[in-house]
Amino acid sequence: MTDIQAVLFDYGMVLSGPAHPPVWAHMQQLTGLSPDAFDAAYWAPRRDYDRGALTGRAYWQAVSPASDAATIDLLIQADTDLWTQPNPPMLEWARALQHAGIRTGILSNLGDAMTEGVLSRFDFAAFHHRTWSYTVGHAKPEPQIYAHAVAGLATPAAHILFLDDREENIQGAQQAGLQTLLYTTHQAFEAEMHVRGLDSLLHPSR
């Protein structure tokens, strides 16, 4: 394994925790759609939102065309609430890496309103570079977005460890030349780091 000089984090389900079920139910009620219809409507235009083809308002108007402007505002706020449950052990590890002088970055599929909402809840200033998909016009697993993140970290791809919770995004990163680790639970993550002989990275010190 090539020496790791930087760690690149996905945001959702890596730095943050799972979606908050009560908020999902609240959004579904706001739209007036059935649970199945809301699930389908929520995900259908999501990629266009992530890639910046839709703004937050345009996305929610596509999801729930019958909603008025005030309800759209509530849905945008609730969507932030849905995806901003923290993942404390991973946030703590990121801080430990930064304290040890190891470069860190974020590479996330997020639309404009979601990014604004996330940044209102989390202070990511210590990360050396942050790639939000809507600003690039591409989303994982498209190769252009990995190239943007690698350039931002100013580190060769082969020396970057990328963490994501989706297999297709991991495969895209591998094709871009990054080292990768599929994140499921923090316990499994720590075990895999140990198996790979990366204990010094897992417990960094300056």
Rank of each mutant, 00 (worst) to 15 (best):
R47N: 13
H203L: 07
A139V: 07
M1E: 09
T184M: 07
F9H: 00
Q77E: 13
Q171T: 07
Q187W: 08
Q179P: 08
L75Q: 05
G12T: 14
T55N: 04
K140R: 04
T31F: 11
D39R: 15
Q85Y: 02
A78T: 10
Y183G: 11
D164M: 07
H148T: 13
L202D: 03
A191G: 11
T155P: 04
H203V: 09
W60L: 09
D10S: 10
R196M: 00
Y134N: 01
Y146S: 02
R57S: 03
A96S: 13
L198Y: 01
P21D: 04
L97R: 03
G177R: 04
H128R: 12
G12H: 14
H194D: 00
P22K: 08
A69E: 15
G152H: 10
N109K: 10
Q187V: 02
Y49L: 12
A78F: 11
V136L: 11
L178E: 03
L201A: 12
H159N: 15
Y146V: 07
L107C: 09
A149W: 12
A37H: 02
E116M: 12
Q98F: 11
S205A: 02
L202N: 09
Y59G: 07
E168V: 11
T84G: 12
R196S: 06
H26D: 01
A191Y: 05
G17P: 10
I102G: 11
L110G: 00
E192P: 04
S16M: 10
G197P: 00
L201W: 14
T2P: 15
A191M: 14
P156Y: 13
A100N: 07
I160E: 05
S205E: 12
V195P: 01
T155C: 14
Q144A: 12
I72T: 05
V14T: 06
L75K: 04
A58F: 00
Q144R: 12
I145N: 13
R103Y: 00
Q187C: 03
A40I: 03
D68K: 00
I102H: 10
P21R: 00
